[in-house]
Design a protein around this nucleic acid. Structure first.
Lengths: 346, 346
DNA sequence: CCCCGCCGAGAGAGCGCTCTCAGAAACCGG
DNA sequence: CCGGTTTCTGAGAGCGCTCTCTCGGCGGGG
């Protein structure tokens, strides 16, 4: 074994591999890329040379000619508060990472927080460094989908897009959890245990996930009292405020469906502080099934499970499929089912 | 204004910009890269051409010749549990992202969870797609630092590295919070409010952050009773178990320094379940100052604040400095001060 | 035994950019 | 107004790789 040539000086190139193996650069290239159509004897020689030199292809050079980066961008536009407190993103990233790794692609993470970040991200995407884009947490004014579309970059969106016409755009692929169905499950459960005056605490209504959960609630309570609906913001504080409000408006409520576990933890606290027993006096169902929250409220939280990591994986798979087969028509969007997880709070 | 050429067909190249501006490719390149040494008249012509064509440099081509990627890798090797439940990583990423964006560099995120991921990451890093590496959560057996070092890639580590000789390696740059100092602060505070029998719950002792926090505790209690030390694992469950243990061994304890907020939340629960009042009977100090936990325990948690985002920024800044000035000797490692945040639990 | 066909290997162009080098143009003092 | 600088600009090589095209060689059929 020679010294590791990889470290010092120039990294070995295909040229040097070819030379050592006594073949042409073209043949070496063929071997490195699968070796189809190369006689076994030569292939072995090249393979040995690769190992000996510690050769690793230079991706920049390869990209230059193939126009394939083997990298995709993940764009997350989310204000600080949620990005930090919600395991949502970490789980997503994990799912994406896994799927991407399996296909030997890389993940470039682009976080947007200010206006000018969108510019930067747009420029970057225009630079052609990634083959596709995964978009999250789209807010109505986010220019990125438009940019990405204009650039002709394949993309998949996490969560149902909310702008007008999005739904009917056949080119728009998204993956979402069945928020509406989940909400129905929650309300149904509350009903099945005999609750009559079921309130709800929603997320911010500029996000489709919040809207869909509220719609699910309304599906089962079509002529519900608007006083039973309070608007939160997916934070524990927001849950506290909303619950306080509800209690003031409708002291007779006997159940609450809260659109996130974190908000539910705040809500339960308010209920107990107000002397209501959970679940005896007021039953509570959350949404998310975030282990670190739902398993730690008192009492432990009954909630709706969503498959976040699976969502990330699915998005990635859809995107990769599009990349590998650009001709095919856009795959259809996917809604992942949600499920009820019964613990103690309802 | 012509049609946007960016969308359809080939993206505009420097060549086409040069042609439109009536200059050579070299001059166009100069303008694109700052325009030094180009007469104003020509520069403007080129700039107009750039805008008109919507030209964006092809980074692959540029990288091929400059050997600079304007991208750095962030390697996180952490088992699922912590990556999900701890806002630690999200905050880090945010800090890194901010600093990187300011320098117009990109972040490639590499998550390792299995053995074989290390291989993949090693191969990727060897591919020369990034200019430097940021490493986190190093475990003793992690081969990545070694790999990175061998490849000659500049890198900065988050958290004090724990392997033998690391400390004295002048080439090894790391950024850490003052874990030991923070622990001292905590114990000092508990003493200052008159506590006599101060226990501690540690993190897993294969991580330097846990070790350092324990060392800080011991600094102030040099001949402390070993019965007052219980080993946790940075999860709420772990905190519960450890607290139960401590209570069994030393029912007379009147304070606990818990090495993480999440564990502290578990510990407080056990204490209250055992009928101890917090802080009257047992005072509790956490570590981390994770808002979503510390502000929500009952009573609210007194804890040690660490500047996680700042840590990410600092790591990035140190790395970029190394990249821009490879000749300079390695900057020295940095320890970020910690501070006591008094709430209600102590 | 010759020719055709096919498979495997090599030559070479070219991806889009930077950067060196040399020549052209502008500028200065004498 | 001229020679010598000093600026600017352009030509061209080359970064490392892929991929097409061509050619050599071998086997088999006539």
């Amino acid at each position: 074994m020679t010294e590791s040539e990889a470290g010092a000086g120039g990294r070995p190139t295909l040229e040097s591999v070819a030379e050592l193996a006594g073949v042409s650069r073209a043949t070496a290239s063929r071997v490195v890329n699968g070796g189809a159509g190369v006689r076994a004897a030569l292939r072995e020689k090249v393979e040995r040379a690769v190992v000996e030199l510690g050769y690793v292809p230079n991706l920049a050079a390869r990209t230059l000619v193939t126009r394939r980066n083997r990298a995709i961008a993940v764009v997350i536009a989310e204000p600080e508060a949620r990005f930090f407190s919600d395991p949502f993103f970490a789980q997503h990233l994990r799912g994406i990472s896994r799927e991407l790794a399996a296909a030997d692609n890389q993940m470039v993470l682009l976080l947007a927080e200010e206006e000018r970040d969108h510019d930067r991200i747009g420029r970057y995407l225009a630079g052609g460094h990634v083959d596709g884009v995964l978009l999250f947490s789209l807010h109505r004014s986010d220019p990125t989908p438009e940019t990405v579309h204009r650039l002709g970059l394949p993309f998949v969106i996490g969560g149902r897009p909310g702008w007008p016409g999005a739904e009917s755009d056949r080119d728009l692929v998204y993956v979402d959890n069945d928020n509406r169905g989940g909400a129905r499950l929650a309300v149904q459960h509350l009903r099945s245990i005999g609750r009559q005056r079921i309130a709800t605490i929603t997320g911010p209504l500029d996000q489709t996930s919040s809207i869909d959960r509220l719609d699910g609630y309304r599906d089962l309570l079509p002529d519900g009292d608007e006083d039973l609906i309070a608007i939160g913001d997916f934070t524990a504080d927001g849950g506290t405020r909303a619950m306080t409000e509800l209690l003031a408006r409708r002291p007779d409520l006997d159940a609450v469906f809260v659109a996130s576990d974190v908000m539910a933890s705040g809500a339960i606290r308010v209920l107990r502080a107000a002397g209501r027993r959970v679940p005896e006096d007021v039953a509570v169902v959350g949404f998310d099934n975030v282990e670190s929250v739902a398993a730690w409220t008192e009492p432990r939280l009954t909630t709706i499970r969503q498959e976040i990591e699976e969502m990330g994986r699915l998005m990635t798979r859809l995107l990769l499929r599009r990349l590998n087969d650009p001709g095919a028509s856009a795959p259809s969007s996917v809604i992942i089912p949600t499920a009820l997880v019964v613990r103690e709070s309802a």
